[in-house]
Design a protein around this nucleic acid. Structure first.
Lengths: 352, 352
DNA sequence: ACAAAAAACTTAAATGATTCAGTAAAAATT
DNA sequence: AATTTTTACTGAATCATTTAAGTTTTTTGT
């Protein structure tokens, strides 16, 4: 029962004692100005500050109040990876803008590959935002806490989500790409189409495999466009990239270009992949867009500056975060589908 | 005294009662496996999980323990802005890698322009990392909490910091740039050289103004190189960019190129500024590097892919975060200066 | 078989703040 | 002046957990 702390931390009670008032009054000075006289309040605040007491302790406060004014953000892949992902950054930017406005704090959670270990910290936030496909176990555990949750780019029954219509956006850009050439031979570079840590060329069976939902939707959208143009995409012309990074995308792109397929249209499920594909094509002596059209998805900032600049689907990432945070804080939990826009640039314009 | 919660949250006590054991035993099951028999521990954990109890509440735990296993990161500019800053991202990536390893959580704090409001959440973290020049009031308040603190790219007396030798790195790249042309006319685009929200062309008085320390150091480094080459830089050839964004950098670059100065060397204090300067130069009909050499600082990922690719100083941002986090967690609080490397690319090679 | 040691478990104080209910004093109303 | 209302403040229960110290049970050693 002994206290290991060397110097006892100054607390509200200490301040109250110094001033000869009750703890309730000091607490009210910080939280409910209408509960005490203006004079006393000012005296308390200035004395507290002089003593080095900078306001109530969050742990104690949130224990008693049952809320913390902290919002938890669960990043699907390891945080490590997410911070280098331009999409996640923009989304976090949106969230933080809103949190700042509401004077809330942001607690980040990350899932490692096999790390679904629960952290005591999960009990702190008043609500959660999930970004991207979370580990289902973690997701369920947190939802079971009964706090408001919103997902971004991740659809789960009964949980409000913010996202885009991936299927129709994918169809839109595929339609455009196909319209740019006479005889299209399409290859697809997709994200996490199969469960694997390596780049995979798909087989028939893989089409039924459980993949990340947004990738599945985009794939369906591509198929819609292909079908409508009387083309076909055999599974062998689809590659699954395990992580949205340049490194893996280049491996996949190289395979695609060296294969007997000789594609002249590459549909990429992200800009990171598309940019890597462009650079791979160029290093293999192919001209983009004359020899091969390459399109992306996301419209990250590099897309505009690349050469050739990248045709892609613009989605409002920051807006996603904003909307999700607002939904949570205003307790307005209804699904939201944001608009997307086809952005045509050089990488799909062979005739110029 | 009444409980406003609708359904009382399941707690450790509840689990203990269901199992007919003491709360201490349940607590030990979660925290100190050696304090109870293996059988009972397994029984407790499985029953707890079955009941939907997912481990101790952070608020209560950290109140009692006096620590939270949460690390606070204070971002100098608003978080909003930091998330779009590639430098901050890499740094956060480094921090998070280490925190993940140590199973700690990350609580983000942000300072708005005039928002130095203290948040109750400041009392939670076991330690703080400051990134970049913080508001001094906030900084002092948090340091006064007596918890371990580390700064990154921000030097304050008695507080251990992680950074680079800005002055010598700046000198190094300036020496290189100057050596590439016969008669150098230098302009400098720097960050926050004066206190202002607008782009400013400096005057003599401004040189003594309080600017951000790392900018001041870089400026001194540029001066070192200029002096050593028997050149001069009047204050009128220096522009201060208020935020490290493309928008403001372009304004400054445009001013620099339209001025009667006609610089053929632009020393930029960040890659974001340098890339904006390149694009501005090109839109004004100037060839980089033939008409004007432009160099940056930081080596962000776009630097390599730009055309022309950007000569810059590579600094290990992720490493900064890693080192800072390790210092904090291993309680090894000593200053650390990381190495930098001059990366010569096309933007400073007029002869190729 | 008995004492000593080790293991297993419990009791209860402590952590720092919030807030309901109550009291006393001051102000307003009749 | 008496009564009511309002304001200003206090007392004490409560939030969920940890952990030192104490108690009981089991194991070990001789």
């Amino acid at each position: 029962m002994e206290d290991k702390r060397i110097t006892k931390r100054l607390n509200l009670k200490g301040v109250a004692e110094k001033l000869g008032v009750s703890t309730a009054t000091v607490s009210n000075a910080f939280n409910r100005p209408d509960q005490l006289s203006k004079n006393l309040r000012e005296k308390i605040l200035s004395e507290a500050s002089r003593l080095g007491y900078h306001g109530p302790n969050l742990a104690a406060r949130s224990l008693r109040r049952g809320r913390s004014d902290v919002i938890g953000v669960m990043l699907s892949d390891s945080l490590t990876y997410s911070f280098s992902d331009p999409m996640a950054n923009q989304m976090l930017q949106g969230i933080s803008e809103v949190l700042m406005e509401y004077n809330k704090q942001l607690l980040l959670f990350y899932e490692g590959k096999d790390n679904t270990a629960q952290s005591s910290a999960e009990s702190l936030p008043d609500g959660f935002i999930f970004y991207g496909s979370s580990n289902l176990e973690t997701f369920k555990r947190i939802v079971a806490l009964g706090k408001p949750c919103v997902t971004i780019d991740y659809v789960q029954d009964k949980i409000p989500s913010v996202g885009i219509d991936d299927r129709s956006a994918a169809k839109k850009i595929a339609m455009h790409a196909i319209s740019q050439v006479n005889h299209g031979t399409v290859a697809i570079l997709g994200m996490k189409l199969v469960v694997s840590d390596r780049v995979c060329r798909l087989t028939q069976d893989d089409l039924d495999e459980k993949s990340v939902e947004i990738s599945r939707q985009r794939l369906l959208g591509y198929f819609d466009a292909v079908t409508e143009n009387d083309l076909t995409i055999p599974p062998e012309s689809i590659w699954s990239v395990p992580f949205n990074t340049e490194k893996y995308a280049k491996i996949a792109a190289k395979e695609a270009f060296s294969s007997s397929l000789h594609p002249n249209i590459i549909l990429c499920m992200s800009d990171v992949i598309a940019l890597a594909a462009i650079s791979t094509a160029q290093s293999m002596g192919l001209n983009v867009p004359k020899d091969v059209i390459i399109v992306g998805f996301d419209d990250i900032s590099e897309a505009k500056h690349a050469s050739p600049s990248l045709t892609t689907v613009c989605q409002q990432n920051a807006q996603k975060g904003k909307v999700a945070a607002k939904m949570l804080l205003e307790n307005n939990l209804t699904n939201c589908i944001l608009e997307t826009k086809l952005v045509v640039r050089q990488s799909s314009s062979p005739t110029n």
